[in-house]
């Protein structure tokens, strides 16, 4: 068949395509991760990898398992809904091994002001003060017990041991 003979070079070109395509399929077979497509168009194993990240905030339930006495002070006060690490910072390391890492006691003059400094931008009902006028520079804990800050709840400088307080 002369047509096929004279078009022979075209088949050679097409053959290159087929070869390249087969090569592509072979490489693809080995390169695509095994878990790809298990749930959808992605690598299913990545879900487990992301879930395996280290936790840094222990969560208040964990804190309360040891510091039950603080929970008791806190639970009836205005800070009942404020979680431990909102003020004390991320403490998973401490929860993991209390001896390995001792949290520093927050400076109430700084930490309280973060939320309670008066600003027109804050919701009206939220308790807020101008720190300079309100306390003339004294740390807040002079009058307020941070775990139960209402004035009727705690005597000034209450000798309650603050949770995680080292000093």
């Amino acid at each position: 068949m002369s047509v096929f003979k004279d078009a022979g070079h075209l088949f050679r070109f097409a053959g290159l395509f087929v070869l390249a395509f087969i090569l592509f399929l072979v490489i693809r077979h080995f390169v695509v991760p095994k878990s790809f497509g298990q749930y959808g168009h992605y690598r299913a194993a990545s879900i487990g990898e992301i879930a395996a990240h280290q936790v840094k905030y222990a969560g208040h339930e964990t804190c309360e398992t040891c510091h039950a006495e603080v929970f008791d002070v806190k639970k009836d006060g205005k800070h009942a809904h404020v979680n431990c690490e909102a003020c004390h910072g991320a403490l998973a390391k401490h929860a993991d091994d209390p001896g390995a890492m001792t949290p520093t006691k927050p400076d109430t003059a700084v930490i309280c002001a973060r939320c309670h400094t008066a600003s027109a931008a804050k919701p009206k009902g939220f308790p807020q003060v101008v720190p300079a006028d309100h306390s003339t520079g004294l740390p807040c804990e002079t009058c307020h017990q941070p775990h139960n800050p209402g004035m009727d709840a705690a005597a000034p400088k209450a000798p309650v041991k603050a949770a995680g307080g080292a000093k």
């Binding site: 004279d6 070079h9 050679r12």
Partner: peptide, 19 residues
Amino acid sequence: MTLGSTNISERALHIDERV
């Protein structure tokens, strides 16, 4: 680049032209 084919007969070139 010839892919081993040196067929440049008139007929082959005509096929090339059409393709």
